[in-house]
Design a protein around this nucleic acid. Structure first.
Lengths: 300, 300
DNA sequence: CAGTTTGTTTTTAATAATTAAATTCAATGT
DNA sequence: ACATTGAATTTAATTATTAAAAACAAACTG
């Protein structure tokens, strides 16, 4: 019970490594030095030393920590595999919602989900609490969580929000000087589009990634934590939809490549009006596609 | 230990109320009916009935629940005061940061803060997790929370983000038809500005609220959960800064009123260029004021 | 006997207890 | 005098426990 001793185990094993690189009879460094080196507290070092002592690997008297014999493989402590990171959880959660088309209003069962995703219930709660800022989930009146999206409304508002952010990015981008790195990046992305277009019939699956890269490039000129955070959610959702909506994939991607190229060329020509127009055209179509895919999913 | 029985206590007291309105010898309604009426589960009703039975207030045999005698004041259970709501917590937390000028990089002590704010440590964690989406706090590498704003950088990015959102709101607003309610609202806010200007020397403190109202009105035309959520944070922070930065308050507010009026008039005249220009002017000055107030605070 | 109402069991979720780890401070040895 | 250790205190992650909800089955009533 109580918290895991993962930290202790990892430190103990590292300490074994240090012992292996020493001669029998040598002295281990001071507690504080060890603690500093492996980035844990002295408390943890002391417990590890104690254990080394009871295992008769070292003799510990005051500040003398003498190595008695080399540790063997059997002395190593097994480590529990690490829990998925926050980003990993985010991905899996969105995947679950989008792929299995969980309807809006579904009550989320913390215990069950935490088992399903293999994370402690606690961190799942924290995660949901974060998502509630984006209105994807809500707290129920008497405890519990309710999935309030992914509805058509959510998709519309997300797309509109994306439109606002990207239009802003364009205005920023076009005001940048000739020698800014963005122009080189844009030309690079343009080349990738053309390469993909040539070979589209074989590689049309690759467009999803390229689409993400293009939008990320455009938005990279806006250095703003709020925009960035929003962008992360947006690109995740659009990315997954590209991945799973298989209807007319080739045609859709071919059209999107043309739209991207038109947009890129307008930007490279420093044509503000043209860029905005091309962007608007692409983003509107993107929104329609997202909505259509939602409706299609619902009917299936 | 384990969860509180607040729910039970409140239900039991309500049940006493129901008993008081009955005659001795009368029958209480069915469990499910009671549960439904006071919006709790039947489980809780049954425990309450059991307690009424052992207190000899009712006689409970199967579906007969006969009132034996009227409950007295001493039968009521004391209730623990309710914990502050999420919004309350948000306000108090921001107030704490801004008012006491907590420096960026401060390690937040969950236990201490939860005592200070009088909320369970658990809900504080959830709250912080939500804020981390906005980059105001961050998880430390080995557990714990770190306050990563409120820095000048944060203020700049927040202001820039605000600029993007409000410019978008203006474009929306100006495309609305003549008979939309927004025009009436704008005229109303305009009148309030003029009234305040006339009496500014006495009432200049009231500007903070009016400023919030004006910006909320402009943004109300954008129906988008992401924008709304961001707006909530933005207005909170700007609101508190107006409240606490007392330097040149009268002059600042007088200038801001003029800027607002210029902006409002341009919008009422359906003048897109003028509106954008006026908005830009006001928002830029607002940003400078926020930054200056931060620097001033730092030196103090 | 059909539909309530109650009794019981199972599941879920909130909180307190528990323990690992970090931090702090005093004491000790070199 | 300084570095190092020993012990005590504080903090935070997780589990165990309990309240509440939900689901199910039996029993009663008209």
């Amino acid at each position: 019970m109580a918290r895991t001793d993962d930290r202790f185990r990892s430190a103990y094993n590292k300490l074994l490594d240090i012992c292996t690189q020493m001669e029998v009879g040598g002295q281990l460094p001071a507690e504080a030095v060890l603690a500093d080196r492996m980035e844990v507290s002295r408390t943890i070092i002391r417990s590890a030393l104690q254990r080394l002592d009871t295992e008769n690997l070292i003799q510990w008297e005051g500040r003398r920590k003498t190595l008695i014999k080399q540790p063997e493989a059997r002395h190593r402590l097994s480590q529990s595999e690490s829990t998925p990171t926050g980003e990993e959880l985010e991905k899996r959660f969105l995947e679950w919602i989008l792929r299995f088309d969980v309807p809006a209003g579904t009550a989320l069962n913390i215990a069950q989900l935490s088992r399903q995703f293999g994370v402690p219930a606690h961190s799942l709660q924290e995660f949901l609490s974060g998502l509630s800022r984006f209105g994807l989930v809500e707290r129920g009146s008497k405890g519990g969580w309710i999935l309030s999206g992914f509805t058509a409304e959510f998709a519309i508002e997300l797309s509109d929000f994306r439109l606002v952010l990207e239009m802003n990015a364009i205005r920023h981008l076009l005001s940048l000087p000739q020698d800014h790195e963005i122009w080189g990046k844009l030309k690079e992305v343009r080349a990738e589009h053309i390469a993909l277009r040539k070979d589209l019939k074989k590689r049309y699956h690759d467009f999803s990634t390229l689409d993400g890269k293009f939008h990320a490039t455009v938005n990279s000129v806006v250095k703003n934590r709020f925009v960035l955070e929003a962008q992360k959610l947006i690109s995740l959702i659009f990315h997954y939809h590209y991945m799973w909506d298989k209807r007319d994939e080739l045609e859709r991607n071919a059209a999107a490549i043309e739209e991207h190229l038109e947009w890129i060329d307008a930007m490279l020509a420093r044509d503000m009006g043209g860029s905005e127009e091309a962007a608007l055209k692409h983003l509107r179509r993107s929104k329609e596609t997202l909505l259509a895919s939602l409706k299609n999913h619902k009917l299936a």
